[in-house]
Design a protein around this nucleic acid. Structure first.
Length: 565
RNA sequence: UGAGGAAUAGCCAAGCGGUAAGGCAACGGACUUUGACUCCGUCAUCCCUAGGUUCGAAUCCUAGUUCCUCAGCCA
C-alpha cells in the first residue's frame, strides 16, 4: 500500500470504524477480531470482495486480525470444490487470514450448547411438520401459535434430541426449536428452528452427523468460539440480531461478539448473482463463471481488473447503513488509475485499414524508438518497425469528415505516433464504393524525436507496420445489463432472464498488434494507444492466437459522428 | 396494518450543536506526439417535509412522508 492510499484510508470514516475505536478506547476489547464467513456453495463475487476488504482492512487498521471461516452448516448445498476456489480468490485479492476455520469443527460444541438450552428449558424438540410450523408461525401482523410439543418435559426433549443425533428419525420428522415467544413482533424470535435432521454426507465431517445447526444458531456460536469481536454482515440480518444476542446469552458463551450490519452496494449494469449467472451460462450467453463480463472474482480477474483497483474502489465507496447503487464508471476510474503507471503502452489496430506510403522506398524497414510508458519513463524504450505499408484504424480516416475531425482525410496531414507525418493523397475503393486502402506520402523531416518544428498537425494516430504485424483478437465488453439497471441479485428466483440483457455486451474483432506482442503471456496487461487497457485472456489465448480482453476503454471527449465517409 | 432499518448534489459518502469534507460523473479552460493523462475552475445558502428548542440545528425534540428488510427445517 502506498502512502497516498494510507492517508486516504486514515482520513475516511464510517460508523463501524467509529464503533471499533470507541470499543478499543473504553477497553471493551483489546484486539479487534473480524471474520469473513463464506458458505462454500458457489464462487465469490464483487459483493464478497467488498465484505472481504471491509473486514480485513478494518481489522488491519486497528492492528487486529481476521479469520477465514467456512460456514458449512448445510451439507446438501456445499462442496469442497468451493473452499479451494474461495481461498484462492481471497489471496488473489491480497489478503491473508489469521486462522482458517470450519463451522463444522464446532459441531460437537454446538450440540453441547443445544443440550444446555434444553436443560434450561430454553429449547424443545418439535414434532410438527414443516407445513405445520409454517402455518403456526403467524404473519407479520398476527402472532403465532404455540406448538403442542412446546411444553413437553425437558427429559423428553433431551432424549429425543439425542436420538435425533443418533439417526433414529428421518429428515424433517423432528426439529429442535428455541423456546422464546410465539407472539413476538419479531418473527425471528417466534421459536426459531435451531437444528434439523439431514441425512447427508458432509464434505468436511463425512457421515458423522445427521443433524445440523441452522445459521441463526450456529453463527453467533462460531463467532463466540473464535473470539470474534465485531461480526459484520449486511442489512437484512438486522432483525436477526436480537436472536444472535439471545444465543450468546442463553448458551452462556464467555466471549461476547457483537453483530453490526452495513448496506449492500450494487453497481450499475453488473451481474454477480449465482442463479442469474447460471442461467446465462445455460443460455449460452456467457462462457463460464469466469466470463469477463460477470462480476465474479474469477471473471474480474480474467477481464483484467487488478486487486489494487478493486480494493481502492471499495475503500472509496465506503461503508454505511444504507443500500446503494454506484455508477460502474467509478470502478472504471480506479482501474485506469491503477494501470496508468503499470501498463506498458503499445499500438494495436482493432479495425484495420491498409495505408500505403507511396514515397517510402519499397522493401525498406526501419526501426523506431518508442517509449514504453511516457508517464513512467523507467519502463524504458522499445523498438517498432516502420515501412511502406501500415495499418491504421478505420475510424481514423474519413473521406468526408465533419468539422473538428483532425484525423486523416484527403489532403490532410497527421502524425503517426513515434514515426512521421503522413498526408492523404488518394483513396482506393472497391466495386461497392467502400474504402479499402489509402495512399499517403510521408515527410522524412518530420521523424519523431528529430526535433522537427517546421509545422504542426492536429492529430496523432496509432498504426502497426503491415508486414511484421501479429494478428490478434480483441474482445470488447459492455455492461451486461442495459440502461444502468441494477441486478436484483438473490431476489431473482429463477426469473433471471427478466431483465434486459445487452445483446452487444461482447464484440469480437480481428486486428493487428506490434511484433513483440507475440511474447505476451496470459494476464499481461497493456494499454493499446487511444483504445484502452487490455488483458491477455488466459482461456482463449494459445501459442498461435493472441486474445485480448478490453478491461476498460480510455475516456474520450470526442464522439465520432454516425455517418462514415 | 406488526417489527426492524435508512433518508445529505445525478451517484457513492463525511459530518455527531458553531455555520455542508472527499471521490465518481458532468461542464468550462490550459496543456498535449494518446480527442488520454495532468493542471486550473464550476458544480448543495442547503441536508426528505412541516413545526419546535437554541444566540446558533444536517446534527436535539415533535409530527408526518418515502424507500428497504423480515413470515426457509437457506445462509
Amino acid at each position: 500500500m502506498d502512502t497516498k492510499t494510507e492517508t486516504k484510508l486514515a482520513s475516511s470514516s464510517n460508523f463501524i470504524k467509529t464503533i471499533m475505536s470507541e470499543d478499543l478506547k473504553s477497553g471493551k476489547t483489546k484486539t479487534i477480531v473480524t471474520r469473513f464467513p463464506p458458505e462454500p456453495n458457489g464462487y465469490l463475487h464483487i459483493g464478497h470482495a467488498r465484505a472481504i476488504t471491509i473486514n480485513f482492512e478494518l481489522a488491519d487498521e486497528f492492528g487486529g486480525r481476521t479469520h477465514l471461516r467456512f460456514d458449512d452448516t448445510n451439507p446438501t448445498k456445499e462442496d469442497v470444490e468451493f473452499v479451494e476456489a474461495i481461498k484462492e480468490d481471497i489471496q488473489w485479492l491480497g489478503f491473508d487470514w489469521e486462522g482458517l476455520f470450519f463451522a463444522s469443527d464446532y459441531f460437537e460444541e454446538m450440540y453441547e450448547r443445544a443440550l444446555l438450552l434444553i436443560r434450561k428449558g430454553k429449547a424443545y424438540v418439535d414434532e410438527q411438520s414443516p407445513e405445520q410450523i409454517r402455518e403456526t408461525r403467524g404473519t407479520l401482523t398476527e402472532p403465532g401459535q404455540e406448538s403442542p410439543y412446546r411444553n413437553r418435559p425437558i427429559e423428553e426433549s433431551l432424549d429425543l434430541f439425542q436420538r435425533m443425533r443418533s439417526g433414529e428419525f428421518k429428515d424433517g420428522e423432528k426439529v429442535l426449536r428455541a423456546k422464546i415467544d410465539m407472539a413476538s413482533p419479531n418473527i425471528n424470535l417466534r421459536d426459531p428452528v435451531i437444528y434439523r435432521i439431514l441425512h447427508a454426507t458432509h464434505h468436511h465431517t463425512g457421515d458423522k452427523w445427521c443433524i445440523y445447526p441452522m445459521y441463526a444458531f450456529a453463527h453467533p456460536l462460531e463467532d463466540a468460539i473464535e473470539g470474534v469481536t465485531h461480526s459484520l454482515c449486511s442489512l437484512e440480518f438486522e432483525d436477526q440480531r436480537p436472536f444472535y444476542d439471545w444465543v450468546i446469552r442463553e448458551c452462556e458463551m464467555p466471549n461476547v461478539p457483537r453483530q453490526y450490519e452495513f448496506g449492500k452496494l450494487y453497481i450499475t449494469g453488473a451481474i454477480s448473482g449465482k442463479r442469474h449467472i447460471r442461467k446465462l451460462i445455460e443460455d449460452g450467453v456467457l462462457d463460464g463463471w469466469d466470463d469477463p463480463r460477470v462480476m465474479t472474482i474469477s471473471g474480474m480477474r480474467r477481464r483484467g481488473f487488478t486487486p489494487e483497483a478493486i480494493r481502492a474502489f471499495i475503500r472509496e465507496t465506503g461503508v454505511s447503513k444504507s443500500n446503494g447503487v454506484v455508477d460502474s464508471r467509478m470502478l472504471d476510474h480506479f482501474i485506469r488509475e491503477d494501470l496508468k503507471l503499470k501498463a506498458p503502452r503499445t499500438m494495436g489496430v482493432l479495425r484495420p485499414l491498409k495505408v500505403v506510403i507511396t514515397n517510402y522506398p519499397e522493401g525498406q524497414v526501419e526501426m523506431l524508438d518508442a517509449e514504453i510508458n511516457a508517464e513512467n519513463p523507467e519502463m524504458g524504450v522499445r523498438q517498432i518497425p516502420f515501412s511502406r505499408e501500415i495499418y491504421i484504424e478505420q475510424d481514423d480516416f474519413m473521406e468526408n469528415p465533419p468539422p473538428k475531425y483532425h484525423r486523416l482525410y484527403p489532403g490532410n496531414e497527421v502524425r503517426l505516433k513515434h514515426a512521421y507525418f503522413i498526408k492523404c493523397e488518394n483513396v482506393v475503393k472497391d466495386a461497392d464504393g467502400r474504402v479499402v486502402e489509402i495512399h499517403c506520402t510521408y515527410d522524412p523531416e518530420t521523424k519523431s524525436g528529430s526535433g522537427f518544428t517546421g509545422r504542426k498537425v492536429k492529430g496523432t494516430i496509432h498504426w502497426v507496420e503491415a508486414t511484421r504485424a501479429v494478428p490478434a483478437e480483441f474482445r470488447l465488453y459492455e455492461p451486461l445489463v442495459l440502461d444502468g439497471e441494477v441486478e436484483d441479485e438473490e431476489a431473482d428466483n429463477g426469473a433471471a432472464g427478466s431483465r434486459s440483457i445487452n445483446p452487444n455486451s461482447l464484440e469480437v474483432l480481428q486486428g493487428w498488434v506490434e511484433p513483440e506482442m507475440s511474447e505476451a503471456k496470459a494476464h499481461d496487461k497493456f494499454q493499446f494507444f487511444r483504445h484502452g487497457y487490455f488483458n491477455v485472456d488466459p482461456k482463449h489465448t494459445t501459442a498461435d492466437k493472441l486474445v485480448f480482453n478490453r478491461i476498460v476503454p480510455l475516456k474520450s471527449s470526442f464522439e465520432l459522428p454516425k455517418a462514415k465517409g
